[in-house]
């Protein structure tokens, strides 16, 4: 645009070889730059090494506190117990209505049953019978308790034989009365069953006593034995489903819900 004898317009492209000297002046900033020199080989000061070592020590202590590294299973440290806050009394877990608390405990126990009867308790129709709508589940409490504690073998009243020759194995080994009460309450009030009552811990204890005094103690029950000897309710009084209980021990609490 502008002739070259005027002030240089820097937007204009310039013939480099002809305008050599002038370009150097125009590009004064680029011309006065230093080249980046060779990389230095000076020794590293001891202070830096010590500072870095100190940082590594702190980081190592933090990592050491981290438990098993790369364990995606543990969300908290093994045996972790939440410390009660300073100045706060530990009042234990918040009480819940009985039916809710028993059901919650029973739902955990049921995970063992679910491997055969299925998570929806519908069984498979061939080897494992459905628990939903079963008269032996929702009927007399002693019936259900004896089957859970001792298992069941042989043909049913309908003539059908479940589980092959082995039948259902006894599940009572190592089961606590609270667990038995919980799982019975759960079964009787889930999967479409709704008796609305709570099988208490006392009733579960009584069931265990009856079970140990059976004629053929230690063997599986049969349909015949169930209908002849155990088609009654367990001894003991049921409780009000809304009674507040401790969700861990299932014992009634005096304290009202907060």
């Amino acid at each position: 645009m502008s002739p070259s004898n005027q002030k240089p317009d820097l937007d204009e492209s310039i013939n480099v070889t002809q305008a050599h000297g002038r370009l150097i002046r125009e590009a004064a900033a680029a011309a006065r730059e230093h080249r980046i020199a060779d990389n230095g080989r000076e020794p590293v000061s001891l202070g830096v090494v010590i500072a870095c070592g100190f940082v590594l020590l702190i980081a190592g202590a933090v990592l050491g506190d981290a438990g098993t590294l790369f364990s995606y299973k543990s969300t908290f440290r093994d045996g972790y117990v939440r410390a009660s806050a300073e100045g706060a009394g530990d009042s234990g877990p918040v009480p819940k209505p009985a039916l809710e608390a028993f059901m919650a405990k029973g739902a955990k126990v049921y995970t063992r049953c679910a491997s055969c009867h299925g998570p929806d308790a519908k069984g498979d129709g061939a080897n494992y019978p459905s628990l939903a709508g079963s008269k032996w589940v929702t009927g007399d409490t002693q019936t259900l308790s004896m089957i859970i504690l001792n298992g069941l073998v042989g043909p049913m009243s309908t003539g059908k034989t479940y589980g092959g020759a082995g039948g259902m194995q006894a599940q009572g080994g190592g089961m606590a009365p609270e667990e038995l009460a919980g799982v019975m309450t759960f079964l009787r009030n889930s999967f479409g069953n709704s008796t609305g009552d709570v099988v208490t811990v006392e009733m579960a204890k009584a069931a265990m006593e009856i079970s140990s005094k059976r004629e053929k103690a230690g063997t599986q029950t049969t349909a015949e034995e169930i209908t002849s000897a155990h088609a009654v309710a367990l001894p003991g009084d049921s409780i009000d489903p809304t009674l507040l209980v401790d969700p861990k021990t299932l014992a009634p609490t005096a304290a009202p819900a907060p």
Binding site: A59, A66, G67
Partner: peptide, 18 residues
């Protein structure tokens, strides 16, 4: 979240000082 993750993050952030 898995227990070690926050500790790993803390240790790495500390080591950023290096």
């Amino acid at each position: 979240i898995p227990y070690f993750l926050p500790y790993l993050g803390a240790a790495a952030t500390i080591m950023i000082a290096l």
